Simulated assay, not measured.
Amino acid sequence: MDYQQILELVKEVSKAGLTNFEYTEGNIRIAMSCPQPEEKIVVPASNIALQEAIGVSANSVNGANTAGTEGVAAQSQAAEAVGEKGGNLVKSPLVGTFYTAPSEDAEPFIKVGDTVKKGQTLAIVEAMKLMNEIESEFDGVVTEILVENEENVEYGQPLFRIQ
């Protein structure tokens, strides 16, 4: 099995969302495992300002502690905030480190306002020392880049908005 075949195998296993995978061919054995991503609670600043404006804290509703439902509410608010603007979201197919360019001194693959075609490389996500190209799933114009360069990303995290 050559290097390109291994890269393709990693991409397909990541795309399928598998947490464990093992492959044996002759004396070659490849085992991959990916821990379940931790659920992060992201509350956009606009939601915090709204809560402060109406006098409701994230921890209480009518004086009752809602720690058990707080994460679910914050997650749904964050998802609504990302989805409010419309367009198509390109999401991370795996957990790793997000890079906007092929190297530190190179120009970014794309910028806000660029027109992209389906299959065009938008960024790279590094996982286990392998560089995985993130390709556009849509034709359109990049209206928003939702992740900063060298930021850690989770599986399914929105990376770009394309309209």
Results as ranks from 00 to 15, higher is better:
residue 47 N to A: 13
residue 56 V to E: 04
residue 13 V to L: 00
residue 26 G to Q: 00
residue 38 E to I: 11
residue 10 V to E: 05
residue 21 F to Q: 02
residue 33 S to D: 14
residue 15 K to D: 13
residue 52 E to T: 11
residue 37 P to H: 00
residue 8 E to P: 07
residue 19 T to K: 15
residue 61 V to S: 07
residue 55 G to A: 00
residue 5 Q to T: 09
residue 49 A to Q: 10
residue 7 L to N: 09
residue 43 V to I: 15
residue 7 L to I: 07
residue 48 I to K: 11
residue 10 V to C: 06
residue 39 E to I: 10
residue 19 T to F: 15
residue 40 K to A: 08
residue 56 V to S: 03
residue 39 E to C: 05
residue 27 N to L: 11
residue 19 T to C: 14
residue 55 G to Y: 00
residue 55 G to N: 00
residue 24 T to N: 08
residue 51 Q to L: 15
residue 11 K to Q: 08
residue 56 V to D: 03
residue 10 V to S: 05
residue 37 P to I: 01
residue 20 N to V: 14
residue 59 N to K: 07
residue 44 P to H: 00
residue 18 L to I: 05
residue 28 I to T: 09
residue 47 N to G: 10
residue 37 P to D: 02
residue 16 A to F: 08
residue 42 V to T: 10
residue 10 V to K: 05
residue 26 G to S: 00
residue 29 R to M: 11
residue 50 L to P: 03
residue 33 S to Q: 14
residue 6 I to T: 07
residue 18 L to S: 10
residue 39 E to Q: 09
residue 15 K to R: 13
residue 8 E to D: 15
residue 5 Q to S: 10
residue 6 I to V: 12
residue 49 A to W: 04
residue 14 S to W: 06
residue 45 A to D: 14
residue 35 P to E: 09
residue 40 K to G: 08
residue 6 I to N: 03
residue 46 S to E: 13
residue 24 T to W: 03
residue 61 V to T: 10
residue 5 Q to C: 02
residue 14 S to Y: 10
residue 18 L to M: 10
residue 30 I to M: 02
residue 5 Q to H: 05
residue 47 N to L: 12
residue 36 Q to A: 12
residue 41 I to K: 03
residue 38 E to Q: 13
residue 40 K to T: 11
residue 46 S to M: 08
residue 50 L to H: 03
residue 58 A to V: 14
residue 44 P to Q: 00
residue 20 N to K: 15
residue 33 S to K: 09
residue 25 E to Y: 06
residue 11 K to L: 04
residue 53 A to Y: 12
residue 23 Y to P: 07
residue 53 A to W: 10
residue 59 N to F: 05
residue 39 E to N: 09
residue 42 V to I: 13
residue 9 L to Y: 02
residue 48 I to Q: 14
residue 21 F to E: 00
residue 18 L to R: 10
residue 45 A to S: 12
residue 24 T to H: 06
residue 10 V to D: 04
residue 59 N to P: 04
residue 47 N to F: 14
residue 8 E to W: 06
residue 22 E to F: 02
residue 16 A to P: 08
residue 18 L to N: 07
residue 9 L to D: 01
